[in-house]
Amino acid sequence: MATVELSFTALPAHIRTARLVATAVARRSGVDESLLDEVRIAVGEACSRAVAGHQRHCPGEPVRLALTDLVGRFEVEVTDTSAPVADGQSGADGPAATALPDGLGIAVIAGLADEVQISETDLGTSIRMSWPSSGPSR
Protein backbone atom coordinates (compact mmCIF):
# COMPACT_ATOMS: atom_id res chain seq x y z
CA MET A 1 0.00 0.00 0.00
CA ALA A 2 1.19 3.49 -0.80
CA THR A 3 2.34 5.71 2.04
CA VAL A 4 -0.01 8.46 0.90
CA GLU A 5 -2.75 8.23 -1.71
CA LEU A 6 -4.57 11.16 -3.22
CA SER A 7 -7.35 11.37 -5.74
CA PHE A 8 -8.63 14.65 -7.11
CA THR A 9 -11.21 15.96 -9.53
CA ALA A 10 -9.67 16.49 -12.97
CA LEU A 11 -9.39 20.25 -12.74
CA PRO A 12 -6.20 22.30 -13.34
CA ALA A 13 -6.74 24.13 -10.04
CA HIS A 14 -6.06 20.93 -8.08
CA ILE A 15 -2.71 20.14 -9.70
CA ARG A 16 -0.94 22.60 -7.41
CA THR A 17 -2.34 20.74 -4.39
CA ALA A 18 -1.02 17.46 -5.81
CA ARG A 19 2.42 19.03 -6.29
CA LEU A 20 2.48 20.35 -2.73
CA VAL A 21 1.44 17.00 -1.24
CA ALA A 22 4.01 15.10 -3.33
CA THR A 23 6.79 17.49 -2.31
CA ALA A 24 5.86 17.26 1.37
CA VAL A 25 5.81 13.46 1.34
CA ALA A 26 9.06 13.34 -0.63
CA ARG A 27 10.73 15.54 1.97
CA ARG A 28 9.48 13.33 4.79
CA SER A 29 10.63 10.24 2.89
CA GLY A 30 14.17 11.55 2.91
CA VAL A 31 14.51 12.76 -0.67
CA ASP A 32 17.39 15.20 -0.79
CA GLU A 33 16.39 18.88 -0.73
CA SER A 34 18.19 19.42 -4.03
CA LEU A 35 15.83 16.93 -5.71
CA LEU A 36 12.55 18.24 -4.32
CA ASP A 37 12.09 20.72 -7.18
CA GLU A 38 12.48 17.85 -9.63
CA VAL A 39 9.78 15.88 -7.81
CA ARG A 40 7.50 18.91 -7.78
CA ILE A 41 7.86 19.65 -11.48
CA ALA A 42 7.70 16.02 -12.66
CA VAL A 43 4.57 15.30 -10.57
CA GLY A 44 2.99 18.50 -11.89
CA GLU A 45 3.68 17.46 -15.47
CA ALA A 46 2.25 13.98 -14.95
CA CYS A 47 -0.87 15.39 -13.26
CA SER A 48 -1.35 18.03 -15.98
CA ARG A 49 -1.23 15.30 -18.59
CA ALA A 50 -3.73 13.16 -16.66
CA VAL A 51 -6.11 16.10 -16.12
CA ALA A 52 -6.00 16.93 -19.83
CA GLY A 53 -6.88 13.33 -20.69
CA HIS A 54 -9.71 13.14 -18.17
CA GLN A 55 -11.22 16.43 -19.31
CA ARG A 56 -11.44 15.05 -22.81
CA HIS A 57 -12.65 11.56 -22.05
CA CYS A 58 -13.98 11.19 -18.51
CA PRO A 59 -14.27 14.53 -16.65
CA GLY A 60 -16.21 12.92 -13.80
CA GLU A 61 -13.43 10.47 -12.94
CA PRO A 62 -10.72 11.45 -10.44
CA VAL A 63 -6.99 11.41 -11.16
CA ARG A 64 -5.07 9.22 -8.72
CA LEU A 65 -1.68 9.83 -7.16
CA ALA A 66 0.16 7.28 -5.03
CA LEU A 67 3.29 8.24 -3.08
CA THR A 68 5.31 5.36 -1.67
CA ASP A 69 8.35 4.99 0.56
CA LEU A 70 10.43 2.09 -0.67
CA VAL A 71 13.81 1.01 0.64
CA GLY A 72 16.10 3.78 -0.53
CA ARG A 73 13.56 5.05 -3.09
CA PHE A 74 10.63 7.43 -3.15
CA GLU A 75 8.10 6.45 -5.79
CA VAL A 76 5.24 8.42 -7.30
CA GLU A 77 2.57 6.90 -9.51
CA VAL A 78 0.07 9.06 -11.37
CA THR A 79 -2.79 7.06 -12.85
CA ASP A 80 -5.43 8.27 -15.23
CA THR A 81 -8.42 6.34 -16.51
CA SER A 82 -8.80 8.15 -19.80
CA ALA A 83 -7.99 6.58 -23.13
CA PRO A 84 -4.34 7.16 -24.05
CA VAL A 85 -3.99 10.79 -25.14
CA ALA A 86 -1.07 12.18 -27.08
CA ASP A 87 0.76 14.78 -25.01
CA GLY A 88 -0.28 18.36 -25.73
CA GLN A 89 -3.19 17.34 -27.91
CA SER A 90 -6.09 18.14 -25.68
CA GLY A 91 -7.84 20.36 -28.20
CA ALA A 92 -7.82 24.09 -28.76
CA ASP A 93 -9.97 24.82 -25.73
CA GLY A 94 -8.59 22.20 -23.36
CA PRO A 95 -6.33 22.88 -20.40
CA ALA A 96 -3.24 21.99 -22.38
CA ALA A 97 -4.14 24.26 -25.29
CA THR A 98 -1.03 26.27 -24.49
CA ALA A 99 1.23 23.24 -24.12
CA LEU A 100 3.94 22.47 -26.58
CA PRO A 101 3.35 19.42 -28.77
CA ASP A 102 5.40 16.26 -29.24
CA GLY A 103 5.38 14.89 -25.72
CA LEU A 104 7.20 17.76 -24.10
CA GLY A 105 5.59 16.99 -20.75
CA ILE A 106 6.89 13.43 -20.92
CA ALA A 107 10.30 14.73 -22.00
CA VAL A 108 10.41 16.97 -18.95
CA ILE A 109 9.43 14.06 -16.69
CA ALA A 110 12.09 11.86 -18.25
CA GLY A 111 14.64 14.62 -17.78
CA LEU A 112 13.81 15.15 -14.12
CA ALA A 113 12.89 11.78 -12.62
CA ASP A 114 15.64 9.38 -11.65
CA GLU A 115 13.64 6.46 -13.08
CA VAL A 116 10.47 6.59 -15.18
CA GLN A 117 8.11 3.83 -16.28
CA ILE A 118 5.10 4.60 -18.45
CA SER A 119 2.43 1.94 -18.87
CA GLU A 120 -0.55 2.26 -21.13
CA THR A 121 -3.53 -0.05 -20.71
CA ASP A 122 -7.06 -0.11 -22.04
CA LEU A 123 -8.10 1.91 -19.00
CA GLY A 124 -5.55 4.69 -19.33
CA THR A 125 -1.97 5.57 -18.50
CA SER A 126 0.20 5.09 -15.46
CA ILE A 127 3.35 7.15 -15.01
CA ARG A 128 5.63 5.78 -12.31
CA MET A 129 8.58 7.94 -11.28
CA SER A 130 11.12 7.47 -8.53
CA TRP A 131 14.03 9.20 -6.84
CA PRO A 132 16.62 8.05 -4.30
CA SER A 133 15.73 8.63 -0.66
CA SER A 134 17.31 8.07 2.71
CA GLY A 135 14.15 6.74 4.39
CA PRO A 136 11.47 8.50 6.40
CA SER A 137 12.37 10.91 9.17
CA ARG A 138 11.22 9.92 12.67
Binding site: R19, R40, I41, G44, E45, S48, G88, P95, A96, T98, A99, L100, L104, G105, V108
Partner: peptide
Protein backbone atom coordinates in the same frame (compact mmCIF):
# COMPACT_ATOMS: atom_id res chain seq x y z
CA UNK B 1 7.32 27.31 -10.61
CA UNK B 2 7.26 26.75 -14.37
CA UNK B 3 5.99 23.69 -16.24
CA UNK B 4 5.68 22.75 -19.91
CA UNK B 5 2.39 24.63 -20.18
CA UNK B 6 4.22 27.81 -19.17
CA UNK B 7 6.94 27.05 -21.70
CA UNK B 8 4.22 26.68 -24.32
CA UNK B 9 2.85 30.12 -23.48
CA UNK B 10 6.29 31.71 -23.77
CA UNK B 11 6.96 29.99 -27.11
Amino acid sequence: FLDSTGLGVLV
